[in-house]
């Protein structure tokens, strides 16, 4: 392999995330909202609630989460339905729903542009929007997608794992792994021990070897720390912007 082989088409290394941007509180009518962009991929999420639910849908034990996935254009297809379910299950793992019995929380996802790693971007955006809405959660989520490039055009020794793939890389990949990890403060304090990030969601597409999956998992763990650090920084900034009434 030539030396150029260590770089991807957009100039990133195989282990490099795209630049992230997070804006909060963009929607006026929603309780919380966030726009999360990873270069070309961009998602806007609005959170409504906890709010009243029609009696048919309410749960006397906990808040009901509902996720609405709006594609960039057109109407929902089966893929969007699947994304809805994955996102809902992921969020249910971190939201402290039993605090709000009989209430409901709506998460509306609007895809602005899809340039690969869309589900990861949506999970990150949804987490930011939930925080913006002041909904209690057990921890912050960080989601990463990894694409396994076809063996014949990748370098050997695991170099064919592409972190945060673009649409092109994703379409040409042999398999993709999308992982959502939850970071607990234990992990933050104990110098990043590997047990700190708990896998909340793992969805894969295509075929891969077990070793490849484990390698991908490891890289996602590393990347999730970067994402988490970024999310925390942007949260702290946003928070100081709010003024405090005296007690």
């Amino acid at each position: 392999m030539s030396s150029q082989g260590s770089l991807r088409k957009d100039g990133r290394t195989f282990n490099q995330l795209r630049g992230m941007v997070c804006d909060r509180g963009l929607l006026h009518r929603a309780d919380g909202s966030a726009k999360w962009s990873q270069d070309g991929t961009s998602v806007l999420v609005g959170v409504y609630g906890p709010k009243n639910m029609p009696p048919k849908r309410e749960d006397p034990e906990k808040a009901v989460l509902e996720v609405l996935w709006k594609p960039k254009s057109g109407i929902q297809g089966p893929e969007e339905r699947e994304a809805e379910i994955i996102l809902r299950r992921t969020l249910e793992a971190v939201v402290l729903a039993p605090l709000f019995p009989r209430a409901g929380i709506s998460v509306v996802v609007q895809v602005i542009h899809d340039d690969g790693s869309l589900l990861s971007c949506a999970i990150n955006a949804a987490c930011a929007a939930l925080v913006d809405a002041g909904i209690p959660m057990t921890g912050l989520l960080a989601s990463v997608t990894i694409a396994l490039a076809k063996r014949d055009d990748g370098a050997g020794g695991g170099a064919h794992l592409q972190l945060d793939p673009t649409r092109e890389e994703q379409d040409g990949a042999q398999a993709t792994v999308c992982l959502a990890l939850e970071t607990t403060p234990k992990a933050a304090t104990s110098n990043g021990s590997v047990e700190g990030e708990a896998v909340v969601t793992s969805t894969t597409r295509g075929a891969m070897a077990i070793e490849e999956y484990l390698e991908a998992l490891d890289r996602c763990r590393m990347a999730s720390r970067t994402i988490n650090a970024f999310a925390r920084l942007s949260l702290d900034k946003a928070q100081r912007r709010l003024e405090l009434p005296g007690t």
Binding site: L140, T183, P185, D236, L244
Partner: peptide
């Protein structure tokens, strides 16, 4: 003026 306040982020110890 809010710099000295004990603010925490979600997930912080």
């Amino acid at each position: 003026s809010t710099a000295s306040l004990p603010l925490v982020c979600l997930g912080d110890a």
